[in-house]
Design a binder for these strands. Sequence first.
DNA 1: TATAAAATGACAACATGTTGACACTATATA
DNA 2: TATATAGTGTCAACATGTTGTCATTTTATA
Lengths: 147, 147
Amino acid sequence: MKHTTNGSLMTDIILETFKLNGLLVLEGDLLINDLGLTSARWKVLGALSNGPGPMTVSDIARMMGQSRQAVQRLSNEMIQAGLLETQPNPKHQRAKLMKLTGKGKRAYEQAMQKQIPWVNSIAENFKEKELKLVSSLLEKLISQLDS
Amino acid sequence: MKHTTNGSLMTDIILETFKLNGLLVLEGDLLINDLGLTSARWKVLGALSNGPGPMTVSDIARMMGQSRQAVQRLSNEMIQAGLLETQPNPKHQRAKLMKLTGKGKRAYEQAMQKQIPWVNSIAENFKEKELKLVSSLLEKLISQLDS
DNA sequence: TATAAAATGACAACATGTTGACACTATATA
DNA sequence: TATATAGTGTCAACATGTTGTCATTTTATA
C-alpha cells in the first residue's frame, strides 16, 4: 500500500508539526525565562486567562488537551510559586477552583508583552489569507484526532 | 502593544501546534505499540530510512531538530533492542555510524504499513492545494525559527 | 433510594525531551 | 606545526508529558 498524494502531504505536515513544536517550546522558554516562567506554566496561565473564570484542574487539562495529572503537577508548583491560588468549589468538595493571583496576572501580562512583538514580527512575513487557512486546517485536523 | 491581525492568527497557529503535537504523538504510539515501537523510536528509524545512508547520532539529531543527547539515548536503547547497529566511521574514531538492522528495517516497514492507511484516511478530507500550502507555510516557519 | 459509573486528587513509574559539564577527537587557523 | 575551536560520547540533573492505581466524591441510573 502506498501514500495517496494527500497522504504524503499530510505526512509532511505531521513531521513538520513535530519539529515546529520543539522549536516553539524552546523559543517560548527563551522569551520568558527572565520572568520566572516556562512554556508549560505559560500555557496554564493562558488557559485561566482566556477561560470563563476560575476552573478546576480537570477543566484546565481538557482545555489544554493534556492529562489532568500533568496540569495538576504544574498547578501545585504554580501555587507554591504564588502564581495561582485556590478557591472553594460549591459544585465539588475536593476539586477546588484555580484562579490567577495578582502575581499570576502580572506574569501573564508581562509574558504577552514579550510575545506580542515577537509573534507580530514573525507573522508579518505571511499573508493573512494563508494564515487563516492554516489555522482552520489545523483546527479541523485537531478535531478529527480528538475523539 | 497589541497583536496585529497576522500576529493574532499566528498565535492561534502556535497554540494549535502544541495541541496537535500531543495528539499526534498519542496517535502514533497507539498505531504502532504492538510492533514494540514508540513514536520517538519511529522518528529515529524514519530519519535513518530517509537519510542518505548510515549517519552519526549527531547527524540524526540535526536532521530531527533535537538534541544529540536525546537521540543518543534512544539510539543506545534501540541498539539493545536490535533495531540499530553501528559500523566504524572512517571519518571519526569515536562517532560511529548508525544503520538499521534487518529487524529495524522490518519494523519501520511494518510501521509504515500501519501509518499509510491511517494517514490516507485522515488526509482525504482535505484538498491537495490546501495541504500543500500548509506544508510550505510550516516549512517556512520552521526555517525562520531554526536559526 | 441504592448502587453503579464517572470524575477527581494524589502518588508512582516511566518516556521523552532539554541543558550543563567533562574528556576526548577532529578540524581550522595562526 | 602548534594551538585554539568545534564536534562527539557520556553522565547527570531536571522539565514536561504519559499511564496506572487507589481512595474519595459526585453523578447517573435501575
